[in-house]
């Protein structure tokens, strides 16, 4: 019997100039109180900040605040076991929930000087750097889909999209990009 664990197929992503699909990643959804979050982020080598809607990021690992008891932990695909074990060790004995959502969603990068206006074709948030600074992250909507939006640089956004919505989201962005990239 063949081992198929290396065979993966992600969702369809429509090509467009400002959007780049990001590779598969390790994604864990952690829920629990502040102490849980502090321990988990510490174990991953990330700075723990309690501020709402802010991401911590270092050495390819990130923790995105999604709610007062909820953080999305991101790491390179190959680090799943390592990260999972680090977290289990750090959180042992603490009430929490840790769930693998690596395949639930995929990531897109939207970048370029027109990244903000492009996202504003479907996202109702104020994406001015003063209102949505680098490091800010939140769940929001893009047209009729829910996304997680994270500003990783002045002109670059990281989007997390549930996999079945990824074709739709990428197509909306591709269509909207036509007015922004002559």
């Amino acid at each position: 019997m063949r081992d198929l664990s290396a065979v993966r197929q992600g969702p369809y992503i429509a090509a467009s100039p400002l959007v780049r699909p990001l590779p598969p990643a390790t994604r864990l959804l952690l829920r629990g109180n502040s102490e849980v979050m502090a321990s988990a982020l510490g174990a991953l080598g990330l700075e723990f900040v309690e501020t709402a809607c802010r991401a911590a990021s270092a050495s390819g690992r990130s923790a995105l605040w999604l709610g007062p008891d909820e953080r999305l932990l991101l790491a390179p695909q190959g680090q799943y076991s390592e990260v999972f074990e680090l977290l289990c060790a750090a959180l042992a004995g603490r009430a929490h929930s840790l769930v693998d959502v690596s395949h639930r969603q995929c990531a897109l990068e939207v970048s370029g000087p027109q990244a903000g206006p492009l996202l504003n074709c479907g996202c109702p948030l104020d994406l001015d750097p003063a209102a949505f600074p680098v490091g800010m992250c939140t769940r929001t909507v893009l047209a009729k889909a829910e996304i997680v939006l994270w500003r990783t640089a002045e002109r670059s956004f990281h989007l997390e999209v549930w996999r079945s919505f990824a074709p739709y989201v990428s197509k909306v962005l591709a269509l909207a990009a036509r007015e922004l990239t002559p």
Partner: peptide, 10 residues
């Protein structure tokens, strides 16, 4: 002490 996570698409 319970948390919920959607795994429909996982």
């Amino acid at each position: 002490s319970v948390w919920l996570t959607s795994t429909s698409e996982q």
